[in-house]
Nucleic acid binder design. Structure first.
Lengths: 330, 330
DNA sequence: TTGTAGGCGTTATCAA
DNA sequence: TTGATAACGCCTACAA
């Protein structure tokens, strides 16, 4: 490259970084770039500058639309600011979770967006100590002081369950997520709190724990439908399980909402399209992405104001035709 | 690090790469690693060795479960061989597609797995020229000689449509994908070929073009249901649109298969769970991932045997209760 | 505006 | 087995 143009490496470097060079030299360089198919070696540049203009994104599972939907919005914003993203998933595997976290740090990312599952505080603290900003997505890590963007899961389910109680339901089933997952715990707390606030007795048999996948939504809803007495309403606490639950209801030919009231979770698109239209809790994926990306850019600028920042974004309750009062007295 | 142990950096480097060092030195280094929280700088290493042990993965859209499902399987295999993956999506945006491709190459990935949409042959050729193996996923690029792992889309839909024709259907609707996408073209060709082979007249009004999203599946199926004459059977050519189509059918309370036979696409999980069980074409996501990862590892070993290799993986047709003969004569 | 020279953290070569 | 040293490709004073 230097030989080709007869210029020094320094001059070329300047040109590459937007410095001024004389017209003829300028075009000589441009020609050489074309001919030689030259491209800067980001590794070398990163080695020197200690910046890669890249942020790492670590999520539990690629096939989970909640995760990827957030990531898509994050990417949008970061790209606009010249940052690229390296996305990794750990397939909800604790060992992989550690390894991928390490992998990203070793890739010299400038910052990290991390949706943890089994995450350990010490691992993240080690990263923060290296001056690499980390933002936790959707779930905190116990004992860790760190920026995070969460959803108000408790009030999300509170609002949904309250809707059912107000309409007279007393036997409200809930298809909960794994107790190991923070969001599932919170959503379940919301359920408990409504019962408490409205003095409705808690009945263990009305709680079923799934794994946030379609299958378990189908299976657990089927169980509810065959249960005696059958709950008059069911709240399903994530998207995949909602999908399964709806299918179980179709299969059993149970009429919604006359025989059973139903509230689902996430995915507006599906709720509008199903019949009857589904009442759902909608998480603000776009806002989560936007909020975390914006906060990340701020940290990247070296602005540590308000650390550790915690956002708790509100969900929205969407009315639908899938709920009404109970059809029979308990 | 060198100061801390009193050894030379050369010795330390050897240790890090599995070379033999004397016992006391060995433990001195290990201690220092702990204390200083030392980790190798992959950028520097990559600069020197020209290998990053990382492969780039570029897909059209993160929210597409077909893409992510393949990627998940790919990751599994590559991880086992010590390779990490950098996943990027381009949101089906031609400009982003170019940029992200460049981004990955600039990250010095050792190889590339690429599911193209608007991809240009010249861009990929430039990469291949740099000795970076590229494997095309699911779709070829016109005029490009390159390893690829495809699905036999034509026979996939042929098999499905044939099933309908054999049962006596003559008015078979098809909800096709965007004509710009290779797989959609192929699947449509399969439809045409069956009609030809069985001397069934082609009727333009029985073809509707969606965008591979839930919405359009819902909308186009609704159109079919209100169409006069209504097709006696409909084939939906991808998963998202199948989901929408099923919902449209539920909403219209059309009985399957008595009033309408239906064949969907992908996602076994859903097909089993819907009622009546759905006949579907299943793509071998796991095999696609496995095949491409294995081929990639081979290329990474420097083995160029059979280049350009082309795999055309077979889909499976899964019988379900959603098809029967036509209920009325055309 | 351009060139010189030193250094970023590794690995590889060659002596010791 | 160890150490000194020269790259790897780039950036950045500083000097010309």
């Amino acid at each position: 490259m230097a030989r080709k143009t007869g210029l020094s490496i320094a001059t070329i470097s300047k040109f590459l970084n937007g410095g001024h060079v004389l017209g003829p030299n300028r075009s000589a360089i441009e020609d050489a770039i074309q001919e030689l198919g030259y491209r800067v070696n980001e590794a070398a540049r990163g080695l020197k500058t200690n910046r890669t203009l890249t942020v790492g994104v670590l999520i539990p599972r690629l096939e989970n639309i909640f995760c990827t939907s957030i990531v898509a919005h994050v990417e949008n914003i970061l790209n606009q600011s010249g940052y690229g993203t390296i996305i990794c998933d750990y397939q909800e595997n604790p060992k992989l979770e550690r390894e991928k976290l390490e992998f990203l740090v070793n890739k010299n990312v400038d910052a990290l967006l991390y949706m943890p599952l089994y995450g350990e505080a010490s691992a993240v603290e080690a990263i923060l100590k290296q001056e690499i900003p980390v933002i936790l997505l959707d779930r905190p890590i116990a004992g860790l002081s760190c920026d995070m963007v969460l959803v108000d899961n408790l009030n999300a389910s509170y609002r949904a369950i309250e809707e059912l109680v107000v309409r007279g339901h007393r036997q409200i089933g809930v298809i909960s997520g794994p107790t190991s997952i923070f969001t599932a715990q919170e959503r379940f707390k919301g359920y408990r709190r409504v019962l408490e606030d409205y003095a409705v007795e808690f009945d263990e048999s009305l709680v079923k724990y799934g794994d946030y996948q379609i299958d378990s939504g189908f299976r657990l809803m089927t169980e509810f439908l065959h249960q005696n007495p059958r709950p008059t309403a069911v709240f399903v606490s994530n998207y995949e399980m909602t999908l399964g639950a709806v299918m179980a209801i179709n299969e059993a030919q149970v009429k919604v909402p006359t025989e059973l009231s139903l509230i689902g979770f996430d995915n507006l698109q599906m709720a509008k399209v199903v019949k009857p239209t589904l009442a759902i809790v909608v998480q603000p994926m776009e806002l989560i992405g936007e909020t975390s990306a914006t906060l990340l850019l701020k940290r990247l600028r070296g602005d540590r104001e308000g650390f550790p920042a915690m956002f708790r974004l509100k969900t929205e309750f969407l009315h639908g035709d899938s709920i009404t009062g109970p059809s029979r007295t308990p």
